[in-house]
């Protein structure tokens, strides 16, 4: 079985059924199920998410990207701070960066105020944080390879026989 292809297929569409995967990979559903289990146990596959455009729902969501400048801890570098930050459910993504700042945090909250307060009360006072820069997201056009802005539908003619 082409394991890389299995991962590619699931990354593009985690909802593919075992039957569909079996068709695409030319292997039995049993073998594919076993391989997926193995990936999950090895933590190669860590989860399965739906891509949701919350703008189209009643749930209000505010997203902000926070740039942190950090004093690394002796012996642990940036890990100590990062491993504290990952515990907050408000923190959706967290990366160590090269360039003008050190850590990049993506935060989601219900309101601007909630996000701002989280940064002011939780993040900024943490040991090692030298400065924060908060940028609010205005519109999400594309996320994880999925386009969010409305595109045209099928513009082909409805019928033809050519």
């Amino acid at each position: 079985m082409d394991k890389q292809k299995l991962l590619n297929l699931l990354e593009a569409n985690a909802k593919m059924t075992l039957e569909e995967l079996s068709e695409a990979l030319g292997d039995s559903t049993e073998n594919i199920a076993a391989q997926i289990d193995a990936f999950e146990n090895e933590k190669v596959i860590l989860g399965y998410n739906a891509m949701i455009d919350w703008e189209k729902t009643k749930r209000a969501t505010v997203t902000a990207m926070i740039e942190l400048k950090v004093v690394p801890t002796r012996g642990q570098g940036f890990d100590a701070l990062a491993e504290r930050l990952v515990n907050y459910p408000e923190v959706k993504s967290l990366y160590l960066m090269s360039g003008g700042y050190d850590i990049w945090v993506l935060i989601e909250g219900k309101t601007l105020r909630e996000v701002a307060m989280f940064v002011a009360k939780k993040v900024a006072p943490m040991d090692g944080v030298k400065s924060t820069g908060t940028h609010f997201v205005l519109t999400k056009y594309k996320d994880k390879g999925v386009i969010f802005c409305d595109r045209k539908g099928d513009t082909r003619r409805l019928f033809s026989y050519d």
Partner: peptide, 26 residues
């Protein structure tokens, strides 16, 4: 003239039709 055109015209007046007739990539 194509006889088919005629019945595609009928179909075009229905609003819930789905088509598997097109010979061009989606």
């Amino acid at each position: 003239p194509s006889g088919i055109r005629k019945f595609f015209d009928i179909a075009a007046t229905m609003d819930d039709v789905i088509s598997l007739s097109i010979g061009e990539p989606d």
